[in-house]
Design a protein around this nucleic acid. Structure first.
Lengths: 237, 237
DNA sequence: CGACATCTTGAGAGACCTCAATGATGGTGG
DNA sequence: CCACCATCATTGAGGTCTCTCAAGATGTCG
């Protein structure tokens, strides 16, 4: 990992997520608080389970994921992190919060570093900023519970359809994609571990979705071929 | 539902959860803010999916759960609510937040009503109170992700073991139980829907745990017969 | 004592898994 | 430029956990 620059004035990410109000008003405030950036290469571990980070990071570019690891090699991916996400929200409010998961880079990533105190002040600066932050937390919570419902109740086809649609929607909301084809650096194994499936089954399910002309995942890109039908497939309720 | 009294001075719940700091300092503050209480009978719906409650409720007594309902009758329980829990945290910070789940009473329950504004002020009153609230949110998040890991990766025996241990631990933390036998008003169907199983399978799994001398659930009570072995059973990782 | 909810149990089926082998693909070094 | 390697995708055969559907047992309550 190494420090480099990446200015805050041109950053469009902050405008749509946690410190959006402050960032929109005076990007300089954020720029002044940022303690620099850090980069990791694809597949590197960013934080280990048990770490109690004292710096709070936001994801500036690239993808990562949070997961728990089992001794026998199985793992459960808890969420994927894309630009605008916080790596460790807990550290803002809770000192010495030891995380129960680990964070790993999916692609090369760049993180922005902040002191928890500073972010706390930014968030508390206005009611607008507070509710913007609350909105972010709420959404993360919602996504976790969506996955729980998927894994608990839905078939493999629906789980995959929904995961792809969800990620596509989030990317769009952050201004990182604009159509039915977008960057999608998950391996089949990552999809499997996020949805409680095996790679073999994900592969067969993906084949099925491709044959049905709904979805194609190839070369690090996802192509939604028939959004309407994919949504119906995802909503088998 | 009907309004009745239940005083805040003698309430031990608030001391261990969201407004704990304020409550411990001056229980009168909370008492002054409370807009009264509401009761529901067992199995009554407290909030419907799509509702955007303008009042924030905390659970004073009894059990409830949050769940999503499918058209074909399936459902996924997202979390169980026990005294001290918030019914709708989202409403504190986000106006007009339409919930995507419904809330139903498991036993007879009594709720305390608050105006979102008031709770917001209480929480913002001090850093201690803020981090206490953050801690609560964090824990709810953690529990949701624990369930996701369970449903995604663990066998039925482990899922059930962990659910019971988790609920027991939370009850203990709130001073609502003190040993290995505690109130447990979940039907087998509730367990099934919380863990992505069917009642038939929950029944057989419960039988197995009973025969192994680890756990007994009967007449609305859970009895942990061998905590050590039950924990091992739950940690099949 | 019915009426109802809940628990229990059985037989058969399906979704998904395990294990293993075979193809692609892309990067690396000689 | 090709051989080589690691990573990832693909495919097959067989197994199992869990499900579906159904019936019966048990318990609860008015």
């Amino acid at each position: 990992m190494q420090a480099t620059e990446a200015n805050c004035q041109s950053c469009t990410i902050g405008q749509s997520t946690l410190y959006s109000v402050t960032h929109a008003d005076t990007p300089d405030t954020i720029a002044g608080l940022r303690r620099g950036t850090v980069t990791f290469r694809a597949h590197q571990v960013i934080q280990k389970a048990g770490d109690a980070p004292t710096t709070t990071y936001t994801l500036r570019s690239g993808w990562a994921y949070r997961a728990v690891q089992f001794r026998d090699g199985r793992r459960q991916i808890l969420s994927f992190l894309i630009p605008g996400d916080m790596i460790n929200v807990g550290s803002i409010w809770i000192d010495e919060y030891a995380i129960g998961f680990y964070v790993r880079a999916l692609t090369d990533v760049r993180l922005c570093a902040f002191a928890p105190d500073d972010l706390r002040r930014v968030i508390n600066a206005s009611e607008a900023q507070q509710s913007c932050f609350a909105d972010y937390i709420q959404r993360q919570f919602l996504l976790a519970e969506r996955r729980l419902v998927d894994v608990g109740q839905r078939l493999a086809t629906a789980r995959i359809a929904r995961l792809v649609l969800d990620l596509g929607a989030t990317l769009r909301a952050r201004g990182l994609s604009c159509g039915d084809s977008f960057e999608f650096p998950l391996r089949q194994e990552d999809i499997a571990d996020a949805l409680g499936l095996t790679t073999a089954h994900v592969n067969r399910t993906l084949l099925k979705l491709r044959q049905l002309g709904l979805l194609e995942i190839k070369l690090g890109r996802a192509r939604i071929l028939d959004r309407a039908k994919l949504q119906i497939m995802g909503a088998n309720d």
